[in-house]
């Protein structure tokens, strides 16, 4: 499909969406508190323009640092569990026990343990991300065909070198999916965390606007969240394309 055709199709779909949206509101006489029209949401953006940048920054700080810390810990734990049987025997049962605990149930405890402020939020996101990625990393390592490991040893590699030169590159494409899911989840964790204990940020803004039954503002914040999540996802995919040029994966055509 040509690029021009592609763009015009997207524009058309957007137009159809807006027509249905405004049409539904005027036909069924829906009040803005339930479903605001496009102009209400634009007005909300304008009204919040002073506080939005700092809210976005605050939420970005929680989500991104939580995501990065969680990813490093999760992948590191997964690799360590695969590397050392002793480590696996110590940490494995503990992980088995803690993994099924709903992460949101930890929010009150985190507030008690780590106080108010950014750290309980960041740690909550990090915990959620690391449990997902720890398991996924471990599984990815276990699925590596043994012929690669044998070949590496056979050519003279030591265990640590084999891990660095065979296991690490092999698992990258298998982890990308999990990393994208974890990135998506970290936004959700950020919202939940902000509902509980901070005084700034997008999630906090939502809670405040909800008290005023300000639906357009809530939708405006949801839109910001989705734009941020899409940007992060695109960045990950960009990195993926650079790191996985060697895979056989083609564009899906079925």
């Amino acid at each position: 499909m040509s690029a021009a055709k592609n763009i015009s199709r997207k524009l058309l779909l957007t137009a159809v969406f807006f027509i249905i949206w405004t049409g539904v509101i005027s036909v069924f006489q829906i009040r803005p508190i339930y479903l605001p029209g496009p102009e209400d949401i634009i007005n909300s953006f304008i009204a919040m323009r002073a506080s939005l940048p700092s809210s976005i920054l605050s939420s970005l700080r929680i989500t991104l640092s939580g995501f990065l810390i969680g990813a490093v810990i999760g992948v590191g734990m997964g690799l360590l569990m695969a590397y050392s049987r002793t480590f696996m025997n110590i940490v494995g049962p503990f992980m088995e026990f803690t993994r099924p605990i709903p992460i949101f149930a930890m929010i009150p405890l985190f507030m008690i343990w780590f106080g108010l402020g950014l750290w309980p939020q960041i740690l909550l996101v990090a915990l959620g991300v690391s449990t997902v990625l720890g398991v996924q990393t471990y599984e990815a390592v276990r699925n590596i065909p043994s012929v690669y490991i044998n070949a590496s040893y056979n050519l003279g590699a030591k265990k640590s070198v084999m891990f660095k030169t065979v296991i690490c590159p092999y698992i990258v494409p298998h982890l990308i999916g999990a990393i994208r899911v974890a990135a998506g989840t970290s936004w959700g964790l950020d919202v939940a965390a902000e509902f509980m204990g901070v005084q700034s940020g997008l999630g906090y803004t939502m809670i405040v606007r909800q008290m005023y039954l300000d639906t357009p503002a809530i939708i405006a914040v949801v839109l910001i969240y989705s734009v941020l999540a899409i940007i992060l996802d695109q960045i990950i995919r960009l990195i993926e394309r650079r790191l996985t040029r060697w895979t056989e994966r083609e564009k899906m055509s079925f």
């Binding site: 012929v147 044998n150 056979n154 092999y170």
Partner: peptide, 16 residues
Amino acid sequence: YERAMVFQEDAVFPWL
């Protein structure tokens, strides 16, 4: 490494 193996399967590292 003085006894090198050429495997039946494809053992070439696809990431290199």
